[in-house]
């Protein structure tokens, strides 16, 4: 029986930037990493450790300066901007810390947006968006403008949007950074539940108790993995 390939495979990935000041910044320094389908991974590290850069590469928002970047065995490191956009649309659902939703736009329209780029017809868009909002228990706010809901509700809508294209990976960047402890736990429990249903989840965080919801902890310091443990 053929082995299921890892969802993401990074081999000796580096990423450097030329800053506006002319300085050179080595954000990632030889990262080798496999993320298997169905995993719940927390990527941790102090600020400046390169975890945001790693998230951008995992999320196909950016490509490595060197090394191999495989997504489902496809070398996406050489993809064009539009090909990467398609991967993000179909395979990855993002949940950010801030600016998750389009302002002055209803919750429903926000959740429908990825499906518009995915070419899904209107009737199906509304149906699927409402299903995801129900799953996140926020269907009552479907017609509310995104700037009139609470922080916890914003994150739930963002998760609904992240799920709506049925992606292989949910990538959450400090998803609880702006929330109180109770709401933060609520949101992390949603992720846990989604993972239990088989969804691959990667959370970037610097909070230990958030990371504890995950089954695997990867610790980054100075652009290198210093520890990679399973709970």
């Amino acid at each position: 029986m053929a082995k299921i390939p890892p969802l993401i495979k990074l081999v000796n990935v580096t990423k450097h930037y030329h800053l506006a000041s002319g300085d050179y910044c080595q954000a990632l320094n030889g990262i080798t990493l496999n993320i298997e389908q169905g995993e719940f991974v927390a990527i941790m590290g102090p600020s400046g450790s390169g975890k945001s850069t790693l998230m951008h590469i995992l999320g196909a928002l950016d490509t490595p300066s060197s090394g191999q970047q495989l997504f489902k065995d496809k070398n996406i490191g050489a993809y064009t901007n539009d090909q990467l956009a398609e991967i993000r649309n179909k395979e990855i659902g993002f949940v950010f810390q801030t600016f998750n939703l389009l302002p002055r736009t209803t919750v429903l329209k926000n959740v429908e947006r990825p499906m518009i780029y995915g070419g899904i017809p209107q009737w199906e868009r509304t149906k699927r968006a409402m299903e995801m909002l129900s799953l996140m228990q926020i269907e009552g706010k479907a017609e509310t403008l995104s700037n009139f809901i609470s922080g916890g509700q914003v994150q739930r809508v963002a998760i609904a949007r992240a799920l709506v294209m049925d992606p292989s990976l949910i990538l959450a960047d400090e998803p609880t950074g702006n929330l109180d402890t109770k709401t933060a736990h609520e949101i992390m429990n949603f992720f846990k539940e989604l993972n239990m249903r088989g969804r691959t989840i990667v959370v970037i965080t610097h909070e230990k108790d958030v990371a504890d919801f995950a089954k695997r902890h990867i610790m980054l310091v100075d652009g290198k993995i210093v520890s990679d443990k399973k709970n």
Binding site: N81, D82, F96, F99, N100, L101, Y117
Partner: peptide, 12 residues
Amino acid sequence: EIGLLKSIGAKE
């Protein structure tokens, strides 16, 4: 907003 749209799959 443009960044968000691109992250959810908007092409150029």
